[in-house]
Design a binder for these strands. Structure first.
Length: 900
RNA sequence: GGGCGCUUAGCUCAGCUGGUUUAGAGCACCUGCCUUACAAGCAGGGGGUCGGCGGUUCGAAUCCGUCAGCGCCCACCA
């Protein structure tokens, strides 16, 4: 009857259909008269490998884009990759090191050659992996943040913002990554709580005459055995004392009044430094004495500026001690901490060491490297202007965030925004288009900012005194731009909107519709895209932002290589099929929460595929008899399922509009498994080897078609595979473009009637189950009193009845149950167990009485009757009447049973 | 220190502006079934009083307050 295997085999169909879609350019989009629907992919690192976060994120995007196609939109999903400067450069440096090559031995050009080689070697693997998932991106548009167009756009934007006065160069305390040896933005620093130590160091008073008394009331003066006085400073970073140029106390601190105007000696270093006073110092913390190291702490830097302190930079770029320091030159900062702690102790200059928990900043890209505050010249973008552009549209929901809870976070960040350090001391990236003019030692650096060498030269020659400067004399800035300085242009640059403003593509596709991304890049990327969008297009870059959760394991732990709890997505696809994995992702992804991923969910997805597959096998195997009349139960089932389908279509639509995609999937899942397979198909299914009538077959295939369309965004492969068997189609056609039916009204009465019929069927099955009555053994259903349900033929078929008969009083040896207010009974002859029946009915009676008591309590409350809406009171009265009737029925049944 | 969010069956979550029979779903669990679409399955079943306390109300899982626990984001206390 059927040549399809009894199990669905994803491997046999996935590659075939993906190739089919590619061969027929079905993911391709060009502007036309249809309404556009656009998504730009959050570009993964070009040399990255697919992980579970990508799986989730891209599954959602694919679902949205496929659904948009079904809705008749011109759907475009643009793919691409990100050059990820720090991460990629780090990988290249590491690889070179393995070959015995040091970056510092290479020229910029040589290094970049290696980097491009690496990129071409590993680049785009991740995009290949996305195809396995079924991602329907328009691959002909694949972009790279460092390809020609995107690079040109970045430079144009830099020049433009410089010309607008929004970019400046300055000496600032920045976050320095000593491993990558580059500056970082504030956002690239991750603070982690750490168990460290608080070291209490002795700073002796210089030229102490030893005459000072113990001090005034409230003063705390330390003395050693010789009577020499010293101050105690608490610090977590004793290795920076070589850079100390002052000690600071709060002028109002009673403990330390005696130190005012004194000078103290830096331990080991023996440098004499002044005691300064500043209200910045917290009297309560430690001893109230703060060591001031202006070059190695942002706050100390501020103090240094205010109090005109000397700056001693004791660290090199790689975190080793510089020759500015009198001690430990060349030693690594972390090593120094250990050594100096010992040396201080041995010298008797350590008062004590305490355990202390504090937060230490780490580089986001080199997570094992503590960030070092460092004073250096960098490029910055003024952010106030951009914050003012980007805040209102989100706060007033022109751009909607899903879930909404990220709005305050966004607001808070923009309110307190600081200038963005955009320069990186890296080669892999967009080279900063600034050109320095020759300058004498000590003279202030002068530069021009221009798109290319020629323009730079022309600009330079306009500067008085430089009319005859040559290209060779101009020095191109060696630094690259922060990666995010290109990513923030993504929704514009993908359509060449920077280089070629107002072109047809940008006009058609921009603003894009939905952005799907993880919340951890809300500042790095989302906020900045909004800024660039308004600056360069005057419009939002996207209408909705859907923040996915972080993918965790089922115990709620973050996925990590160390824990080994991060499954390989491709292995999962191999095991469960792409559709199964997609479903597994979505089943675990409630909107707005972290997702707890469990392989069992992929298994559930695979099982569902199998369910669909087998339902299809069933229908596919039916023979049609054109002359056969349609049975009543089939006609009724079709009417019911049509209504159920309409209701679910509306429900799914609503859920999608709210980005409740998991719930939408669950609605379709239940519709297919419960309503369609367990009920509808069981009703219309002909007896073994019997044909089905033509009308029922037509309706069933039509339902199947619509169900496949509804499922397609979630499970593109199996739906395409089965769809081809349902209808004749031309080469190049695809379920991907098969529209969903328009909204249709739902007849609630039909649904209610079937619900009642279903309850009756379940009750009879329950009796069968309890009494061990074989499915084939027909039973009779008695109805006590008057009752009517149009779906009686369905009940007869599904409950395996030979008849439904109305009776005045039920058979005394029957198993009884109540649905609604009507009592039903299945005569059992000798099988009845009177005791059990009594117990069962008694339980129901107790429940009904309790229920009634509740209702009557309400109705007895005059204020309820007076104040509650009429409708609510009416409902309560109906409940009361129903309960009374049910109780009467039960009491009568019990009485009869007990007499028998 | 500031801000946000969460706490409903064993697990993961719905339950929107308070009242559609004394709370729903999926999974898990229990019982019985290899009933020719599917054991990756079928049928049936048990299970929560909605974190604690107090308040508003005729009526609260749903609103307010408070306490407890959990989580996230931001912030220069060395």
């Amino acid at each position: 009857m059927n040549n399809l295997a009894s199990k669905y085999d994803p491997k046999a169909v996935e590659e075939k259909w993906y190739q089919y879609w590619l061969d027929h350019d079905l993911f391709k989009s060009v502007p036309d008269e249809r309404e556009p629907y656009t998504i730009v992919i959050p570009p993964p690192n070009v040399t990255g490998v697919l992980h579970m976060g990508h799986m989730l994120n891209n599954t959602i995007q694919d679902i949205l884009i496929r659904r948009a196609r079904q809705k008749g939109k011109n759907a475009l999903w643009v793919p691409g990759t990100d050059h990820a400067s720090i991460a990629t450069e780090a990988k290249v440096v590491k690889r070179l090191a393995e070959q015995g090559i040091k970056k510092s031995d290479l020229t910029r050009e040589e290094f970049l050659k290696h980097a491009w080689d690496w990129t071409h070697e590993h680049g785009g693997i991740i995009l290949q992996q996305l195809r396995k998932l079924g991602a329907s991106c328009d691959w002909s548009r694949t972009a790279f943040t460092m390809d020609e167009k995107r690079s040109e756009g970045v430079l144009r934007v830099f020049v433009d913002l410089y010309d607008k006065g929004l970019i400046y160069r300055g000496l600032r305390m920045v976050n320095w990554d000593p491993k990558a040896q580059t500056a970082l933005s504030n956002e690239e620093v991750i603070y982690r709580e750490e168990n460290s130590k608080l070291y209490y160091l002795k700073y002796y008073v210089a030229d102490d005459d030893l005459t000072g008394e113990t001090g005034q009331e409230g003063e705390i003066v330390h003395r050693d055995e010789q009577g020499r006085r010293y101050a105690v400073v608490a610090t977590t970073r004793p290795e920076t004392i070589m850079g100390d140029t002052a000690m600071c106390i709060n002028p109002k601190d009673p403990k330390n009044q005696w130190l005012r105007g004194k000078k103290v000696i830096v331990p080991l270093v023996n440098r004499v430094i002044p005691v300064i006073e500043d209200r910045y110092v917290d009297i309560e913390f430690g001893t109230g004495c703060l060591k001031v190291t202006p070059c190695h702490d942002p706050n100390d830097y501020m103090l240094g500026k205010t109090h005109n302190l000397e700056n001693i930079d004791i660290f090199n770029a790689d975190g080793t001690v510089s020759d500015q320091s009198p001690l430990y030159v060349g030693m690594d900062r972390m090593e120094v901490r250990k050594v100096i702690s010992r040396d201080l102790t041995e010298a008797g200059l350590m008062e004590k060491v305490e355990d202390y928990v504090n937060k230490v900043g780490y580089s986001e890209r080199n997570s094992d490297t503590a960030v070092e505050p460092r004073l250096c010249m960098q490029w910055f973008l003024k952010m106030r202007h951009f914050a003012d552009l980007a805040l209102p549209p989100v706060m007033n929901d022109e751009i909607k965030f899903f879930p909404q809870k990220y709005k305050p976070t966004y607001h808070n960040w923009l309110e307190n925004i600081q200038d963005w350090c955009i320069s990186r001391q890296l080669w892999w990236g967009h080279r900063i288009p600034a050109y320095f003019l020759p300058a004498a030692e000590g003279e202030e650096e002068r530069y021009v900012v221009a798109l290319n060498d020629e323009e730079a030269l022309a600009k330079a020659r306009q500067i008085p005194g430089f009319e005859h400067i040559t290209a060779e004399e101009l020095r191109h800035d060696n630094d690259a731009l922060d990666t995010w300085f290109s990513s923030w242009l993504w929704p514009i640059s993908l359509f060449d909107g920077i280089n070629n403003p107002g072109n047809d593509e940008i006009k058609y596709y921009y603003p894009t519709n939905d952005l799907v991304t993880a919340p951890d890049i809300i500042f790095f990327w989302v906020a900045r895209m909004i800024m660039a969008g308004y600056e360069y297009e005057g419009k939002m870059p996207f209408r909705n932002v859907y923040f996915t959760g972080i993918v965790r394991d089922k115990l709620g732990r973050k996925m990590s290589k160390q824990l080994g709890n991060s499954p390989d997505p491709l292995m999962l696809i191999d095991k469960f099929g792409a559709d199964g994995v997609r479903m597994g992702m979505m089943l675990s992804a409630p909107a707005g929460n972290d997702i707890l991923f469990d392989e069992a969910l992929c298994e559930q997805g695979r099982n569902f595929n199998n369910k669909i597959w087998n339902a299809f096998r069933l229908v596919n195997g039916w023979d049609v008899d054109e002359n056969l009349a349609q049975p009543d139960h089939s006609r009724l089932a079709i009417d019911w399922f049509q209504n159920k389908l309409n209701a679910t279509l509306a429900e799914v639509d609503d859920l999608f509009n709210k980005f409740r995609i998991s719930e939408a999937l669950m609605a379709v899942y239940r519709l297919f498994w419960e309503d369609f397979s367990a009920w509808y198909l069981e009703i219309v299914k002909p007896a073994y080897q019997q044909p089905v009538d033509a009308a029922t077959m037509r309706a069933t295939k039509r339902f199947f078609d619509i169900l496949l369309r509804m499922l397609h965004p979630f499970m593109p492969f199996i739906t395409e595979e089965l769809w081809q068997h349902l209808a004749e189609r031309a080469d190049g056609e695809s379920i991907m473009y098969a529209p969903l039916p328009a909204e249709q009204p739902v007849d609630e009465a039909v649904l209610a009637s079937m619900a009642e019929a279903g309850a009756i069927v379940s009750n009879v099955r329950n009796v069968r189950s309890a009494k061990n009555i074989a499915p084939r053994e027909a039973v009779t259903l008695q109805v006590v009193g008057t009752w009517a349900n149009a779906n009686a033929p369905i009940i007869v078929k599904l409950a395996g009845l030979n008849d439904i008969v109305a009776v005045e009083a039920k058979d005394p040896t029957a198993a009884a149950f109540i649905v609604g207010t009507t009592e039903f009974a299945v005569p059992l002859a000798d099988k009845v167990n009177v005791e059990e029946e009594i117990a069962k009915l008694q339980k129901e009676l107790d429940y009904a009485r309790g229920f009634l008591a509740n209702v009557e309590k309400k109705l007895a409350n005059e204020r309820f009757v007076a104040n509650a809406p009429q409708a609510v009171v009416a409902i309560e009265r109906k409940k009361q009447a129903d309960a009374l009737s049910k109780i009467a029925t039960l009491e009568e049944s019990l009485k009869a049973l007990k007499q028998s």
